[in-house]
């Protein structure tokens, strides 16, 4: 039965992998990857580390989801949704791994929906709200330059799951960084108004970058074990990429990173509380619900 003859008949055709316009990666990207944890790796540390990287992606994705139906052009609707989906996919893998390593029976949804703000380990940069499109692309550029450098090194992790997540993420975040960089250049080099807004956005966002490169004790221990990436080592690569974009965007004399906040230890601003109130509302309202 051809599709054009009977749309409903086609609904029983289960060979549907090609029906997504834009890939969503619903097939298990970790299929075949061993899930064992090396005997010398502290499981609590590994679970916490997976939460750090997973919460970064989950919270950043939430901010991107808030832009859906509000983007300046249709092409940007597609791009922002796409980036949000990529990060959501990374978050699901990382939260899933965190729950599995923790061994307390929590799955990705228990970790996303049933933790309070003080238990989230994301960097503050991820939770910051976007006053306008310039703030969004500034934050996305800083986030992507840092995360790409991080994921690239994570591919060499001794933990097979983290290495696989790194390899998958590198391809995705390379595009995210490219997208954000193009907009920072367009806005910085565009009109007087867009230049002023891009500058104001960078001035607001860059101080948040300090936290990205301060090494948490958990990261230090896991980095020494060959499992995690020491974020202090990412600074040079980050600066090089950022400077290249900011030069092209004619944005000079911007502030440096300020003293680090402690998002990794659960210290967040009120904005994370607002995000979680929205994200967790329904899941918590109907305990025992199946979706």
């Amino acid at each position: 039965m051809s599709f054009a003859d009977d749309a409903y008949g086609a609904l029983t055709d289960h060979d549907d992998d090609a029906r997504w316009a834009y890939g969503t990666g619903f097939a298990d990207p970790l299929a075949g990857v061993p899930t064992t944890v090396a005997g010398d790796v502290d499981r609590a540390d590994l679970a916490a580390y997976c939460l750090m990287l997973g919460d970064d992606a989950l919270v950043m994705s939430h901010r991107l989801q808030q832009w859906v139906t509000r983007a300046p052009e249709l092409e940007d609707e597609l791009a922002l949704a796409n980036i949000g989906l990529d990060l959501l996919g990374q978050a699901r893998l990382l939260l899933g791994r965190a729950g599995e390593v923790e061994g307390a029976g929590r799955d990705e949804d228990a970790l996303a929906y049933l933790r309070d703000a003080g238990e989230f380990r994301n960097v503050r940069l991820a939770e910051r709200g976007d006053a306008d499109f310039a703030h969004l692309v500034a934050r996305l550029l800083v986030f992507s330059c840092w995360r790409l450098a991080l994921l690239d090194r994570l591919t060499a992790s001794r933990d097979p799951v983290l290495a696989a997540i790194g390899a998958k993420g590198v391809k995705e975040v390379t595009y995210h960084r490219e997208y954000a960089a193009q907009w920072v250049v367009r806005l910085g080099d565009g009109t007087d108004l867009s230049h002023a807004r891009m500058r104001a956005a960078m001035e607001a966002v860059l101080p948040l970058a300090g936290e990205l490169f301060s090494t948490h004790e958990i990261e230090a221990r896991l980095a020494a074990a060959g499992v995690a990436v020491d974020p202090a080592l990412l600074r040079a690569e980050f600066d090089e990429a950022m400077n290249q974009v900011l030069d092209a965007a004619t944005l000079t004399g911007l502030p440096g990173a300020a003293a680090a906040a402690q998002g990794r230890d659960g210290e967040h601003g009120p904005e994370l509380g607002e995000i979680l109130a929205e994200m967790q509302e329904l899941a918590r309202a109907l305990p025992g619900g199946v979706w």
Binding site: W20, T24, V68, A81, L88, Y113
Partner: peptide, 30 residues
């Protein structure tokens, strides 16, 4: 995109969130 898009941030599981976000993205593509 609007009526369903309003539920993306509130979807009750991460799987449903991904499905809904992908669907709304498809609509933008259409």
């Amino acid at each position: 995109m609007q009526p369903e898009g309003a539920w993306i941030t509130r979807a009750p599981t991460l799987r449903r969130k991904a499905i809904l976000l992908a669907k709304v993205q498809d609509e933008a593509g259409h």
